[in-house]
Amino acid sequence: MTLSRTHILALLTLYAIILGLRILVEVVGPLGPITGQLLTLLAFYIALGQAFNIFLGMTGYVDFGYVAFMALGMYGMASGVVRAYEAGLPGYYGIVFGLIQTITLTSLLALIVGGIALRLRGAYFAIATISVNEGLRYLVEGLDIWEGSRGLIVSGPLIRLFGSEGFSLLATIISDIMVFSVALLALVISIVFLNTRIGYALKAIREDEDAARVMGVNTTMYKVLAFTTSGILGGLLGAAWSFKVASIYPPDAFNILYTIEAIILVMLGGAGTLAGPIVSGTLYGSLKYFLAGILPGFQLLVFAPILVAVIVVAPEGIVGALRAYIPATRRFIA
């Protein structure tokens, strides 16, 4: 389906509203329940869902090691900043260097894992990806890379590079805008994919890979493309997020919680749909935020049963269900 202009415009408007609110809150302070933290969470989860959707949603392969990309992004950015500080270079060198490291590391990981693991189907692929994630984590600890289990301290170098004023901006609004840019980039890439041959190839792969190949789809190429794109976006998200943490420890960076959240976001909104991650990111982010006050850390207890229910009852997710049960929406919602 070629996506309707209205649909794309509507999504972009939603993005603009959230970003606008974030900036507004920064200037005038919280608007009732809408605080900077809430909007940060929304941006993060929308970005996470939108980025992971490109792989899980569009191909139907479950990457249980997705957090490895975010971890490499966090480490890539943080170690870039630390290196710039140690070399006595100005701060923005560190950020540029960090971005280059993030993209290099995540594409390398994606190409290596994609080249190997994407030859495996379903269960075997899932097992391989979990192993890659844990393997990487223990490699970082075992060989003492990036300070290993002692943790890579970022806040110190950041404060010295940018001053405490600059650091606090970087840790809040600037990193939020970066997170936002990742979400937007992921949205734009999704639109491009869905509107071109790539999207059709990925849909065919998701529905029936063998049939897709017979119909002329170079399945390996498109799977690796989706995996790498989604992986680099995950890395960029990790890089943007790294400004918010004081130090990075392997168990936190490679925490499977992020993978769980990413899966929930994609499946709840509707795998492979364009609007799904916005819907589920908003739901999940707000619930996590509002629960944090009353029952901190309870969001998974709420969402894990919802995830199981969605898979069993409505595997097409919220947006997918709209498309399935209200035929008129199929023409314009993707």
Binding site: I116, A128, E134, Y138
Partner: peptide, 20 residues
């Protein structure tokens, strides 16, 4: 090795990929 336990776990996970 700086962290023998970590490396030993890494070894097992590398094993899985090689076997797969």
């Amino acid at each position: 090795a700086p962290n023998p336990f970590g490396l030993s776990v890494f070894l097992t996970f590398t094993l899985i990929l090689v076997i797969l």
